[in-house]
Design a protein around this nucleic acid. Structure first.
Length: 268
DNA sequence: ATGGCCGGTGGAACCGGA
């Protein structure tokens, strides 16, 4: 089973390129981020015509996540639990009913910039960076519960986290950014250390593997990228891992998103 | 060498992204 994560930066802007890519690569499951539309604005028919079941958790203008699946989906949950006041659409999960059922969680983790700190170095309450860390705290709890189920499951999406210096072409340029702050990386490692496998690094070592290139300053042409789209697998899911790759070629196509698809192949 | 964008909203600039 091939499962893809892809931050498409607006479904309206990607309405031609995305179906084309799906026809070419025929993934079984796709977790989309930044659809940037309300549920009713999402063109589900386009994907249903390609054989996908579609579940959407949308929001006007910003954020928004969705799942496309060639297998039936059940037990769909929208929104990351733990904060009823959070109205941003950044989380959707469901069980994919293939030969081996897989729980898939699609996430769009807050960017967190600008980083605003009080004089004693703690994040300003109500600020974007505080929101990122609060969201990661809830992600930690959801991750704990997911592991306790002891089933094949994964959490994938745009984490807005640069895990290591080798995951940026110019790591120095990202010092102080919310994606590379010590607090952010600590929260990331704390989740990982619960017992998840980061699929890409389980398969591929070394620098120059990126999943995002800014639209500005010719970043793509200079390969000035960062790797921020990740798969975290539970042990039962990691046992099924066959491969994980980044489709960087997609960034060079007509009218691309600033992110590219990343996928895992599972023996499921 | 330097600087360079894009999407959505709404109908012009502005916000948000990373």
């Amino acid at each position: 089973m091939k499962i893809v994560t892809y931050n498409i930066n607006g479904i309206k802007a990607r309405i031609h390129a995305l179906p084309e890519w799906l026809k070419e690569t025929e993934p079984d499951v796709v977790l989309l981020q930044e659809i940037k539309t309300v549920d009713e604005g999402f063109p589900s028919e386009v994907f249903e015509d390609l054989g996908y079941n579609v579940e959407v958790h949308g929001q006007k203008s910003f954020n928004g996540v969705a799942i496309l699946s060639k297998f039936p989906l059940e037990d769909v949950v929208r929104g990351l639990p733990g904060n009823d006041e959070d109205e941003q659409a950044r989380w959707i999960e469901a069980t994919v009913l293939g030969d081996t059922p897989i729980r898939v969680c699609g996430l769009y983790l807050p960017n967190g910039n600008p980083v605003e700190l009080t004089p004693d170095g703690t994040p300003v309450i109500g600020g974007k960076f505080a929101y990122k860390l609060e969201w990661m705290e809830r992600l930690y709890k959801r991750a704990q519960d997911l592991l306790a189920e002891e089933v094949p499951a994964l959490m994938t999406g745009d984490y807005n986290i640069i895990p290591q210096p080798e995951d940026a072409a110019r790591p120095h340029a990202w010092e102080g950014d919310a994606a590379f702050r010590p607090e952010s990386l600590a929260a990331w490692r704390r989740i990982l250390n619960l017992g998840f496998t980061e699929a890409f690094r389980a398969r591929v070592q070394g620098p120059e593997h990126y999943s995002f290139w800014d639209y500005q300053a010719g970043a793509w042409n200079k390969n000035d990228g960062i790797r921020i789209d990740h798969f975290l697998l539970t042990p039962q899911c990691a046992d099924l891992l066959l491969d994980c790759q980044i489709e960087s070629e997609v960034r060079g196509r007509e009218k691309p998103s600033d992110h590219v698809p990343v996928w895992v192949e599972l023996a499921a």
